[in-house]
Design a protein around this nucleic acid. Structure first.
Lengths: 186, 186
DNA sequence: TACCGTTGCCAACAAGCGTTGACCAACAAG
DNA sequence: CTTGTTGGTCAACGCTTGTTGGCAACGGTA
């Protein structure tokens, strides 16, 4: 609907540079000046297009996990599907790592992280776990294992975690996630 | 051996304030000035006693997980023992949360986190897992689940994770850790 | 008492930060 | 051709940061 503007390429360059910097450095060390330098423009442009640093982060951290529909997958393999989907999602761009890094020191980032797991993982948990009232807790358990592997592999870079192949990670984590979602009790 | 100095109480006050600030704010937002204010002294004292900010962090982030001896626990319940020990450890002081928060944006913090898991959790994994050559990977898997729950509960504060009792967390996570350590294959 | 290392505060530095407003060039509409 | 809008740069602001050096008070020791 909104007509394309001449400045769209600049806006996109800023967003891309911002995502990279946030992912690599976290909120405080990702300065507007460094982002502008990466994007090849003046820092004041960032302010004009995104208002302030918080606004820039908000725009650069839209997350869509792109999780499959609840009905579209066999409940017996949902663990493997989810783990492998998350790994792929985490490796295909910098947004997930960025929001995770920012969320540790910035309240807006933490809020976004909470929202993502509640709104996008919650429904899946509700669809497959035995007691729907228990879904938030199941989703949080899954989130803990997924977040932990992301921390180990992409943020802290524990050597053994980095060295595992994607298949190995899926093989080990899938039963865990499967149990968190579908087991009647611990 | 080293004789006690008159300034020991000040040094201790600085360290305590530093641990709290690092835990609450992360590396960049925990300023020397704010730490000094909390400790009730002048910022320049921090420099005199710890050299610079990195030195202060190094001194404030000595971690001893205080894990039990490998032989001292039944291999069949090691999962539950470890999970409950980690939860206790995480809640009794700010050091674990501090180093985790700092490790996300600061290389020295990340290095410390890697060291802790390698040197202190590694031997336990080596003692109980089927193939000792596989120990680092088993330790990293355990670390991923422990770190993930710590992120969810103490850093990002996902409501359902915060709301679980310690016993519930142990009940859900213990089988996971037990499997990561002792299962013959995924 | 005279002395010297220790403990502490104060004032300042240079650098970097987010943010602002004036100004110029290119373009589209009348 | 003029005019108004848009995309962009430049220089500066007020503030905070880590860090430094000077200086005053204290406290054992000779």
């Amino acid at each position: 609907m909104t007509s394309p503007r001449r400045s769209d390429t600049t806006r996109a360059a800023i967003l891309e540079a911002a995502r990279e910097r946030f992912a690599a450095d976290g909120y405080e060390r990702a300065t507007i000046r460094s982002i502008a330098r990466d994007a090849g423009i003046d820092p004041s442009m960032v302010m004009r297009y995104y208002g302030n640093k918080e606004g820039l982060f908000a725009a650069a951290s839209e997350i869509d996990l792109r999780l499959p529909e609840v009905g579209a997958l066999p409940a017996t393999h949902i663990g493997a599907v989810l783990v492998s989907h998350f790994l792929e999602r985490w490796e295909e761009d910098d947004v997930m790592t960025g929001v995770l890094r920012v969320g540790v020191t910035n309240e807006a980032g933490a809020e976004r992280m909470r929202d993502v797991f509640r709104a996008q993982l919650g429904p899946i948990a509700a669809g497959v776990c035995p007691d729907p009232a228990d879904a938030p807790r199941r989703a949080a358990l899954v989130a803990s294992q997924i977040l932990g592997m992301a921390m180990a592999r992409y943020v802290l870079r524990l050597p053994p975690a980095v060295g595992m192949t994607r298949e190995e990670v899926v093989a080990w984590l899938a039963p865990t996630v499967q149990r968190y979602l579908t087991a009647r009790e611990p």
